[in-house]
Nucleic acid binder design. Structure first.
Lengths: 228, 228
DNA sequence: CGCTGCTTTGATTCGTATCAATAGCAGTGG
DNA sequence: CCACTGCTATTGATACGAATCAAAGCAGCG
């Protein structure tokens, strides 16, 4: 059983919609689990045994083809919700990109609990609508943008979603929780193309790449311009 | 005010979750409206004044760039729900592809009504989850599939979603509610590439193209194979 | 120090976009 | 019924961007 009182994401996760009694009930159903970087929590086509809240770390949602091609269709951060409630099989693979910690529930119990708690469903609905908006805008990127536009858009998006490296919202840049191949899988590019675009942007002074995974945007206007 | 009793999509739309009294209340809030082919119901960035159910026709959800590039991010069929409930601005343009008929609601009134009717929210949640799954699988297509795979996937998807041309589920093929440019905008291709792929498939005997918009799949296995 | 795995750079190929022209159909009016 | 017009679809030639193939550079680690 989880210790909801000490939960780091309590106020931002869907659980925030519950009063103390309800939270206690849900808490009894869930348990914390560590997921090592690279390990998979849910497989595509699984009979969706679980749903979960993310407490720590970053996970990816992946759709894979038979021949090995992969497209990352979503990133999941702390306080985000994972899984497919209401009786469908898991539509994609969920894999940890960093060491992560999640609070998992048996799907059936969760469904039943949700059924009895409209507030929870409402929170879930809001989240799902936001995710849908995000996914659809990413479709525009995947279908219509050039490699340079893709990379520029990606950098701005990551700067917004990732915690700033030196705490405040200063100009410290940010640290990606994954490598070049993953960027490529997010953008629908190859690793080489992704790399070349980044190199070019550095050469043009738009960004600094202080280390493999760290990025600092120097000229936000130019990058936004490039994002199309 | 709408005449819910005579509504053709009543049993499939989100309204199906309501009892007669509730339906009557919602009915008072909504009104039917025709939308001509090509006309836009909702603009991207609008303060999302309305939501609606589709009664008849097909509409598209479009994300457009400043320079005119367009990506269709969703198709909306009868009984589907349109709009962005809960206080967000409309994230995409909604345009009718055929003459259509919708049952529209003032968004604020609808939000408030939904707030009081958990069943409705639940239906909405189910739909939104399904749409999200669909969108994310389409991301795989847009980011990773080749032109031929895209077109093959598209044909199978349309055959499944569109009514069969001769009523039954026989081999009569189906009729697209839109032209080649729109297919291209769905697949993230140009009209020329789309066209060439279709021509090739016809030459290979995989499909017949009896008229501009009609399509008949001859070799479903081969097409599925091609879809990757 | 020398692995090992990731990243970067380079040379070449290939697929799709682009540009341009032609063909075919639908609607209009003579 | 046919000529005319406008639009959509098809076909062709070429250009360009990204993928692929190949090799070298670089960091982390035993």
């Amino acid at each position: 059983m989880s210790d909801c009182a000490s939960c780091t994401v309590r106020c931002r996760a869907i659980c925030a919609s519950l009063d103390p009694d309800e939270a206690a009930e849900l808490g009894k159903m869930g348990r914390r689990q560590r997921v090592r970087a690279g390990h998979t929590l849910l497989w595509e086509g699984d009979e969706a045994p679980t749903v979960a809240n993310v407490l720590k770390g970053v996970l990816k949602l992946v759709v894979a083809a038979a021949d090995g091609r992969e497209q990352i269709v979503g990133l999941v951060f702390p306080s985000d919700f994972i899984g497919r409630p209401f009786g469908k099989q898991s539509p994609y693979r969920v894999t940890a990109m960093t060491d992560a910690e999640v609070c998992i529930f048996n799907r059936k119990s969760f469904d039943e609990f949700a059924e009895r708690h409209p507030h929870l469903q409402q929170k879930l609905l809001h989240r799902t609508l936001d995710e849908l908006d995000r996914a659809r805008h990413w479709m525009m990127l995947l279908g219509r943008k050039s490699a340079s536009e893709k990379v520029a858009t990606f950098l701005l998006d990551m700067e917004e979603r990732l915690p700033n490296v030196d705490g405040t919202n200063a100009e410290g840049g940010f640290e990606l929780p994954f490598g070049r191949q993953q960027i490529a899988d997010i953008l629908g590019l190859t690793i080489e193309t992704t790399c070349r675009q980044l190199t070019r942007m550095r050469a043009d002074g738009l960004v600094d790449l202080p280390s493999r995974r760290a990025i600092r945007i120097n000229d936000r206007v130019a990058v936004a311009d490039m994002a199309g």
